[in-house]
Each structure stands twice: as C-alpha cells, then as structure tokens.
Design a protein around this nucleic acid. Sequence first.
DNA 1: ACTTATTGAGTGAGCGTTCAATCAACAAGG
DNA 2: CCTTGTTGATTGAACGCTCACTCAATAAGT
Lengths: 200, 200
Amino acid sequence: MQIVEAAAKLFSEKGFDGTSIDDIAEACGVAPGLIYHYFDSKADILRALIEQKAFLPKMAEILKTPPKATVEETLTELAYAMWEMLEERREMALMMHGEMQRNPEVVKVIGRVIRTGIRLLSEYLNAQKSEGKLRDDLDPEIFVRTFWGAIFESFFAHHKLSPFVRRIPPKRLVQGLVRLLLYGAINPPNQSELKGESKR
Amino acid sequence: MQIVEAAAKLFSEKGFDGTSIDDIAEACGVAPGLIYHYFDSKADILRALIEQKAFLPKMAEILKTPPKATVEETLTELAYAMWEMLEERREMALMMHGEMQRNPEVVKVIGRVIRTGIRLLSEYLNAQKSEGKLRDDLDPEIFVRTFWGAIFESFFAHHKLSPFVRRIPPKRLVQGLVRLLLYGAINPPNQSELKGESKR
DNA sequence: ACTTATTGAGTGAGCGTTCAATCAACAAGG
DNA sequence: CCTTGTTGATTGAACGCTCACTCAATAAGT
C-alpha cells in the first residue's frame, strides 16, 4: 500500500501532527479525497501502519533463535539482527520514536516490544548465570536495557543526529558494545585486580 | 516566565504541533493574545525555551567536576549528576526528545549537547587508559555512548513508557550500569578466564 | 451495467496571529 | 490633592489560512 509507505516517511520526518493529508496525497501522487477511500481517518493510517509494520513478531523471532556456542557470539548475532530489523523498518522506528511522546497507543506498542525484548533476553542471561558463565551479581535487566539502549541510541543518532553526532558503523558498535558489556572496561592485570576485589 | 513553563509541559505531552496557543494561554490563565505581547510566535516560545533551559552549560559543569579517586566513583557521581540534571529539566528533556524528529534546531542543540558529553568523558577515559587503568582496546566512544545511552533510555522509559516498561530506580541503575561497564558480565574465574583469552 | 477508483470543490472547525479597546499603575504638572 | 498623560498588560473579536473530512460527479475496470 503506497499510502502507508508515504505516510510512514512523512510521519517520521514531520511528526504526525505536522503531516497533513495533503502532504501524504501529494507524496502518493493522488488527490487528498482518495485517502478516505482507503482509510477512515488520519489516525487510521497510523493504526494501519503500526499493525502492518509490527515489531513484536520479528523481535520474538530474533530472540527465539537458538543461541550460539558462546555468550559473546550470541549477543553479537542478536545485536546485528536487531540493527537489521530496525533498518528494515527505519521509518517506522523513527516515527514511533517521535510519536511516543503524544500517542498512548504508540507508547503501548513500544512498551510491549521493549518488555518482550527485556524478558526474553533476561531469560537467556539467567540461564547463562546458572551455568556459571556470568557473574552472580549481574543484574540481567540492567544488562539488557543497556544493551538494547545502546543499539537504539546509536540507530537513532545514526538517522537523526547526524551530522552533529558522529555515526558509528554497526559493525564497530556491535563489537565494541558486546566486548564492553562482557569484559568490562577495567584493565584486568595486577593492580586493577586488587582494586576490583576490594570493591567486592 | 509562566508562559514558558506551561509551554514546556504541554510540548512534552502533546508535541509542538499538537499544542495550540489556546492550550498554552489556558494553562496560564490568560487570553491567547497576551502570548503575542511576550513572544513573536509559537516558534519563538520554543526558541526561548531552548535558550532558557540550556543543557550545555550544566553538562559542561558536571563534566568539569574534578574526578574522584577511582573510575568507578567518578562514573557513579557523573551518572547521578546527569540523572539529576535531566530530572530538573524533565519537561525540557522530554519535549526535546520528541521534537528532534521534526525540528532541525532541536536536532542541532541535542547534537551539540551529546557531542560535548562524548568529548569530555572520552578525554577522561583516555587519561585513565594512559594510566593503565582501563583496557588498551577499550573504545572510549562506545563506552561513553553506551553509558549516556543507558541513562537517557532509562530516564525516558521512566517518564514515558511506564507502566508498560518497568521503572528502574536511579540508584539501582547507576550502580548496576557502572559495575557492568567496568567489570563486565563475564564470570572472572577459571574457565571463563580461559575462554576470555582465546577470544583475544 | 455495475463496481471500484479517483477527483476537486466545498464545509466547518481549528489554528496562529493581529489589533482596537480597555484597564491598571505610575509619573508629572497644576 | 487632583488631573492628565504615558506605558505596559490584557482582552476578546476578528482575520486569513490550513486542516481533516465529505460527497457528487466522473473515469476506469470488469
């Protein structure tokens, strides 16, 4: 449906309220009245958009993928898959990001997606904890929210804050992020190890 | 200036385009025409808002604070200060977050703030690297963007996604985040250490 | 012939903004 | 002390424009 595509793009650029039916019709090369042949209202377009470009099924799919041999590999793959999903639905993601401010429906949808992401990945992390691969004192929720947070932040900065904030290529982001979250920033050798222990 | 306060709140709730002059006037208990006694236009209110509630000076101030004895303490303090700054300017932060979608001026301001944050904290991290306290292979930019990203994400979720996404108390967030980023999630003991080395 | 797609004019509401009129406070002059 | 003048604050009606939406008429497809 061309109308929906055009709307997604315009909503992501000008916001819902800042986009008129005329804008959308013009982008599609049709008369404004035609929009109402297919949709009941402007809000209906947004609803159709949200439904058509649902994140949840794809998110669940990504997170249901059988884990790799190591936590590092698993997270690396997840991060790439997530970035890719966001890119596929770029305009949708950007639009919803902007709209969550004023639209309770959008808030609900975003909330559900994020909560699912947190839940599923936390389960995986807890399993790894049980196997002794991760720290006992690791807070899975903090980990997950930091992980997803960094990916989203980078994605949005990539598309909305450039050229004011430098773009980090996904490859560099994913590798750097996974390493940072798994191994930390502190230098492992002698004195730092001493210090680490006194903190715990 | 009461008009600006009211506008900030409304912009953060309904967006710039979704907020009318009538809305603002009503919230102030004055007639719509009075707004134009003080401001040239609706956009002028936004401009005044951005100027009045500038983040940059405060951000610079926070980041110019002399570091603490350890990286952990320094980052902990920074994170709390940042959260506090966001809370003080809650409506401003939320409004700008929503507006960056459609307003180049807002993008510019946000971009500048973030870039400054990245620059200043990266400098600190690089200094710590030189002293051997942090890993040689640490990417400061990834660290910083993950750090700030997690704080912002949590802040916005706190205010916009609740009750769909659980709120993490700032104290838990800051402690969990700093620990995660410094010490990582991987269990330090024997087998995990072996695995860690084969990866590098 | 019938159905679907499409148009463009029109409608009423809402919007940002203007502005003449009014009011209140204060200062200056008689 | 009273009156007049000035200034800033405030109002609500009005203006021109935009907006989402409607709909009769026409075109296109089967």
